[in-house]
Deep mutational scan, measured.
Amino acid sequence: MDVFMKGLSKAKEGVVAAAEKTKQGVAEAAGKTKEGVLYVGSKTKEGVVHGVATVAEKTKEQVTNVGGAVVTGVTAVAQKTVEGAGSIAAATGFVKKDQLGKNEEGAPQEGILEDMPVDPDNEAYEMPSEEGYQDYEPEA
């Protein structure tokens, strides 16, 4: 019985440690998101679009440190934060509304985080759909 109880105690310690790591990862992701939003706020009209992409990228980098179902929630929060940063930029006159959601080359930025393969159960990952990809044929 002692062996059984000791095993359960060790398992509990492992769960607590994993929860603490997840909590730490979420806190880091939130900190990076805040950094990115402050970065966007300090940019001029020309830099705002690039700044919004930076927020998304920093958040995406930190999301990889967070495991399990938390990833889905962090990704949703990050996307809403990026959308909010863009709205703030438009409201303050840093950028025109028609410039939001495009990178410096004018290509749409939507789907940055949505296409990231995420499995809350950590069982399997699927690649994003290939609808947006084109076949590449090298020139002879």
Rank of each mutant, 00 (worst) to 15 (best):
L8A: 07
L100E: 09
A89G: 03
D135K: 09
G7E: 13
G68T: 10
E20R: 14
H50P: 10
E114M: 10
Q79W: 04
K80W: 08
F94S: 01
V74M: 15
V52K: 04
M1Q: 00
S129C: 07
V55W: 06
Y39W: 04
G36F: 03
G31H: 10
G41N: 07
V63C: 11
K45R: 02
A85Y: 06
Q109V: 14
D121K: 11
K58A: 14
D2A: 15
L38W: 03
K102E: 11
D119G: 03
T72V: 10
L38V: 09
E110T: 12
K96M: 09
S129F: 05
N65Y: 14
E126N: 15
V66N: 02
A56T: 08
G86E: 10
K80Q: 08
D2K: 08
K10M: 15
G86D: 02
V48L: 06
G25Y: 11
G84F: 12
E13D: 08
T64E: 08
A29E: 01
F4D: 01
A85P: 12
E104A: 02
E35I: 14
E83W: 13
L38N: 06
E114K: 14
S42F: 08
Q109F: 03
K96W: 06
P128N: 08
G106R: 08
A107S: 08
K34P: 00
S9I: 12
Y133W: 12
N122L: 14
G41F: 10
V52F: 04
M127R: 11
Y136L: 10
T54F: 14
L38I: 08
K45Y: 09
E104I: 07
A17D: 02
M127C: 10
A107M: 03
G106K: 13
A89S: 07
A85V: 04
V48D: 01
G51F: 10
D98R: 09
A85I: 11
S87G: 12
Q79L: 13
Y39I: 08
E123S: 11
E13V: 03
G84Q: 09
F4T: 09
E110N: 15
E46L: 10
M116V: 00
D115N: 15
A90M: 03
P138T: 04
G67I: 06
K102Q: 01
G14D: 07
T92C: 04
E126F: 13
A90P: 00
A19W: 03
S87P: 01
K23G: 06
E126Q: 01
M127G: 07
G25C: 08
D135E: 10
A30V: 08
N103E: 04
T33M: 10
L113A: 10
Q24A: 01
A124W: 08
F94V: 04
V40S: 04
A89M: 13
T33I: 02
G101D: 06
G36L: 01
Q62G: 04
V3R: 14
G25D: 13
S42D: 09
K6Q: 01
G36C: 02
E123R: 05
T22D: 02
G73Y: 05
G73E: 15
V3H: 06
V48N: 01
L113K: 12
V77P: 07
S42W: 12
K80A: 04
G36M: 13
E110D: 12
V15G: 09
K34Y: 09
A69N: 02
L38G: 06
A27S: 10
L8G: 00
K97I: 01
S42E: 07
Y125P: 11
V66K: 06
M1H: 00
V3K: 01
K23E: 01
A27M: 13
G132I: 14
Y39E: 02
G7R: 13
T72Q: 09
G86K: 09
G101A: 10
T59M: 05
L38D: 05
T81M: 12
A76C: 07
D121C: 09
Q24Y: 15
G36V: 15
Y125E: 08
K45C: 06
G47I: 11
V48H: 00
H50C: 08
V66S: 01
E123H: 14
G106S: 08
V26S: 04
T75V: 13
E139H: 12
G47M: 06
K32E: 07
A27K: 15
V55F: 15
G84R: 13
K102I: 03
P128C: 03
A85C: 13
V55E: 01
V55Y: 15
K97V: 03
D115G: 14
A53D: 15
A19R: 10
P120F: 10
S42Y: 05
K12P: 00
E114P: 04
Q79H: 11
T54I: 13
A85M: 13
A91P: 11
G25L: 10
G36K: 13
N103S: 06
E83A: 08
G68K: 08
G51E: 03
K23H: 13
K58I: 02
K21W: 09
P128S: 14
E57Y: 15
E126L: 12
G25P: 11
P120K: 11
E20G: 02
T92F: 08
N65C: 05
M5V: 06
T44F: 12
V48F: 11
V15W: 08
S42K: 15
E126A: 13
A69C: 00
E46H: 11
Q62Y: 11
G68E: 06
A11V: 14
Y125T: 10
K23A: 12
M5P: 00
V37E: 00
S87V: 04
E130R: 13
K10R: 14
T22A: 01
D119K: 02
A91W: 09
L8S: 00
V52N: 00
V49A: 15
P108T: 11
I112D: 09
K32P: 00
V15A: 08
V16I: 09
A30R: 05
D121T: 11
Q62M: 02
P128W: 08
G101Y: 00
M1F: 14
P108E: 07
N122D: 10
P108V: 07
P117Q: 11
A90C: 12
F4A: 02
M5D: 00
F4L: 15
T33K: 02
G25T: 10
Q24H: 12
A17C: 15
D119P: 09
A140K: 13
P108H: 08
V26Y: 15
Y39R: 11
T92H: 10
A89I: 09
I88F: 13
V55R: 00
G7N: 13
I88K: 02
V3T: 01
V118L: 14
G51N: 07
D119E: 14
V40E: 00
V3Y: 14
E114A: 02
V66R: 04
P138M: 06
F94A: 07
